[in-house]
Every structure is written in structure tokens, then in C-alpha cells.
Amino acid sequence: MFEFQHLWWLICSIIIIVHPWIVYPDDGGGLRLLEMSVPSLADPRDPLRLSCHFTMGGEELNSVKWYKDEEEFFRYMPLQNPAILTFPVAGVHLRPVIPSSHSHNIYYSNNYNSNNNYHRNGVIGDDKAQLYCSKSHCTIELVNLTRVHSSGAYKCEISSEGPTFRVVFSTTNVTVAAIPKERPRVTGLKAVYHPGDIINVSCMSSPSEPPSTISFLINGKPPPQSGAVSETIHSHPDQDGLVASSATMKIPAEKSLFLGPSSAMELRCVSQIPAVPQIPPHHTALTTIFKSPHSYLSNQTWMEWSKNSGSRNSHIFSLYLISYLMLQIF
């Protein structure tokens, strides 16, 4: 019985000591995390902005910390000197920072290069109002992102000074991928096709990373088996490591593919990145028409026929013209 009471008092003592540290963001008082702004998809060609907004609720700020996959890479402690500490983490390259004249604010310099050389004596640019840490929010930027090493779970953690020692945090998963900047480009499609023609088209995507895959749709459906679609081919990486993708399609110009009174066919090229499903597909749609043998007669032929017919056969010409127009429609 004595051992049980001793264990009980030990558990109660631990709870009393630990309780001030266990705080939820929406408890209604003291330190609260208002918003964490981190995109779920980041383009390696652009800086990645991470931002946390919070309210101290009358408490004193101890620190703001940023983590990637539970590894701390940035710490802001306004009551310490230096106020900022950074830690090396794979795939994380912070935009250089310079101290400001304000005691509780740290601003970020616009002056950096691809070699990560810090320009601490540079002039702070127009982004000064958005890029800083204070007692109400902390915004940082990452540069030189890579898909493999910079993707991951980014966490913002804010803590207050004693006696409460509150801790609040939020986490967002970030995927780094180079999104195609333009729609895919279709070449080789003619304005008009006739019986016996071959539809021979190519489609190329805008550079991306991971590479795109190319597919074709005819009137919203996959091409018929009578056609041949090549495998997607990838180009050599460009200076940014991005790859363009291309594919070709050859298919007989069959009358059944051209629909409606105008005998039109819609060809659509679809470029998508299966490895990153949150990137929507990119489409390019073009329309072509089909003309049967009776439409080969040119306007010049009609004019010559009408001229040679004379007034005596004008009514025959009119009937022939009406028949011709009806065939074009039906």
C-alpha cells in the first residue's frame, strides 16, 4: 500500500511540473498561433516563403523556431544576443539576414547570390515590410531549392517565457516541383483533311521537374486503335535541370472521327506530372475539319461552269448548287 501511494504522489508531481508546458493553440488565453502561411507546392525557381503569425496574449516571447522534418534550422530569440541562430539542414538555404536598428526586429536582405555569399552591408529592398521577425510574426525565405532535399514537413514553433512556458506550433508538408510555365505546344495539325490523309502531329510540354508525360485525346476520348502514339520522350536537362517532354501521334483521317454538321474534330494534347498529383494537367486543344470528295470543286470551277451554261441552263445550275450545299451540310 505504501508503494502505491508513493507512486501516486510521484505521478501527481510530474503532472504539476509538466502541465504548464502542455498548451494548445486554441486554449483562449496567452500565447496563440493565429496563422501559418506555407505553400504546399514550391517551385525551385522561386524563393519559398515561410510565415507564422501569432499573438502573445500578454506573455513575453521566448523564441520562434523553424524546423524541416523535425530538424531545427532557424531560431529567433529577441532577448538574446545574437537574436538569430541558424543550423545546417540538408536542402535548407536561408535567405541572408542583416540586423535592423529596431531592437526586436530582424530584416532580410534582398542581396544574395547563387553561391550563398552574404551581403550584410547591402541595402534592404522593398520586401523589408514583409520579411522580418518580431513579437507578432516571423517570416523567412528559402532559396536554391531542390526537389529531393528541400521537400518535407516544415514546422513553426513559438514559445513564451516563464512562468507559463507555453509552446504552440503548426506543420505543413511542402513538395518542391518545377511547374510547366506554358501550355503544351502542338505542331503538324492541318486545317483540313481529306480521305486517305494521315493525321501526323507532335506535342511538346514546357520544361518541368519531375518530367511530364504526354497523351492525346480525340473528341475527348483516347485515339482509336488504328492510330499509333509514341512513348513520351524527354529532352536533356536545361541549365535549371528542367526537362521538356514530347510525343507524336499518327492516325488515318477517317470520316468517323469528324463530327457534327461541320465535320470537325478536336485534338487535345494533355501534359501532366504523375509524380506530383497536386499539379493540374495542362491542355492544348485544336480543331480541324474533314472534306469529302464532292467538296474538291473549287470556286473557280463553279464560276466557269456557270459562265458556259448560259441563261438557258441557269435553273440547272441553281439546282446543282443547292444539292452541293446540302451535301456539305449533311
Rank of each mutant, 00 (worst) to 15 (best):
E3G: 11
E3F: 10
H6M: 11
W8I: 06
L10I: 05
H19G: 09
P25W: 09
G29M: 13
E35N: 11
E35L: 09
L41H: 10
A42S: 12
G57Y: 09
Y67T: 11
Y67H: 14
R75Q: 06
M77P: 00
M77G: 01
N81H: 14
A83Y: 03
V89N: 04
V89A: 05
R95Y: 00
P99G: 08
S109Y: 02
N113A: 03
N116S: 07
K128D: 06
L131D: 15
C133S: 15
C138N: 07
T139N: 02
L145A: 04
R147L: 06
G152F: 06
G152H: 02
Y154A: 02
V176I: 07
R183P: 01
P184D: 10
R185P: 05
K190P: 02
S206M: 12
S206Q: 09
S215K: 11
G220I: 11
K221G: 12
P223Y: 12
S226W: 10
S226V: 15
S226F: 09
G227M: 09
V229A: 15
S230D: 08
P237H: 09
I251N: 02
S256I: 07
L259M: 05
E266H: 01
V270K: 15
S271A: 15
P281W: 12
T284D: 10
L286K: 05
T287Q: 08
T288G: 02
F290G: 01
W302M: 00
E304Q: 06
K307Q: 06
G310A: 04
S318I: 07
Y324P: 00
L325A: 03
M326G: 01
I329C: 00
